[in-house]
Write a protein that binds this DNA or RNA. Structure first.
Lengths: 179, 179
DNA sequence: GGTGCCATGTAACGCGTTACATGATTAT
DNA sequence: ATAATCATGTAACGCGTTACATGGCACC
């Protein structure tokens, strides 16, 4: 997902310079994602070029360059915020294609792929639950909500892995019947 | 997700030219995703450059250029297939950031955003269920599995929307108490 | 004096999207 | 004829990643 509107939203709260955008973004996501600082600067440049933000005054301490959102920026942000996402489905996530192809190609390591993937999801759920608990203790409701979303997703992945494994077993026993 | 290994996998089944890769890929995904033909050609070029595939003979009918997988390509594919994906979580999906920011900025249209998003997921689930049924009728087990995965995901999104809405209502009533 | 963090950028490359350009064959 | 489909590519741009380069300031 693009940083474009995320950064614009942060600047709508209050002006900031590039490095500060990075730290505030990471804080918003509870440290679950590292924001690429180089990308922040290029995104700021594009936002400025498009008139959604503007440089604020001269450079302050240590060459810091603050940016503030413009009226056009607020409008663009509002439009973005008001509209749902039409294409939320990723039918093309890597793990799907991997399992599809593994099954088509008769790959023998499908079992270990599935169990490895399961292990990763379980670990992820543990980490995220910890994050959610911490967020609740700190009354960071938004962050807790974010963590809950990621947990629900990971649980969905696990559910699908179960489904996929059952399907594979069915196919194997059907194949055995024919021999 | 990158087309790179998906294309490599299809070429492992049998050699093909660019346009055929596109149609076979789309068929593998049950017509749920349109593959960008331009991207197919650039990806084929990169795969050839990296020695994972090679052009097969001269151009045949209508300038068709077949590609076949190399030994190195098979090895790379096998490695990719055997390893689970470490980073399956997208804590950064657009809708999360949108709702996070909408809530932080006190955006008034959050309700309609949530209900709009809900509508989209419900429609998606209907479409995908139809796809799954069709796949089962045609005994396309892989495609049915893919559709089921997407359905499970969409259901997870719905579950999270419920969660988010409840959270918002809690906050509103808490705010009302303080007034 | 070095290590680490704050702060700014640029360059190269991968990959996705849109658009453009060309030409052959097939169906109406 | 002409429209659709088959078939090949290129160019420009957005955005993500990695790596490189520069300099100030704080702490030890």
């Amino acid at each position: 997902m693009s940083l474009r509107f995320g950064i614009l939203g942060l600047l709508a709260e209050k002006p900031a310079h590039g490095y500060e955008v990075k730290t505030r973004y990471e804080d918003m996501l509870g440290g679950t994602r590292e924001i690429n600082i180089g990308q922040v600067y290029t995104t700021l440049q594009r936002l400025e070029r498009d008139g959604l933000i503007e440089a604020e005054g001269d450079r302050g301490d240590r060459g810091k360059q603050d940016y503030r959102i413009t009226d056009g920026g607020r409008e663009a942000l509002h439009t973005w915020l008001a509209n749902p996402n039409e294409e939320p489905q990723q039918l093309n996530e890597e793990i799907y294609v991997k399992i599809l192809l593994g099954s088509r190609l008769g790959n023998s390591s499908l079992d270990s792929l599935l169990s490895g993937q399961r292990r990763i999801y379980l670990q992820k759920i543990r980490d995220l639950s910890e994050l959610e608990q911490r967020a609740r203790r700190q009354s960071r409701v938004d962050l807790a909500l974010l963590a809950r979303g990621a947990i629900i997703h990971a649980e969905a992945e696990l559910k699908w892995l179960d489904f996929a494994e059952a399907e594979m077993r069915n196919r194997q026993s059907a194949a055995a019947q024919n021999n």
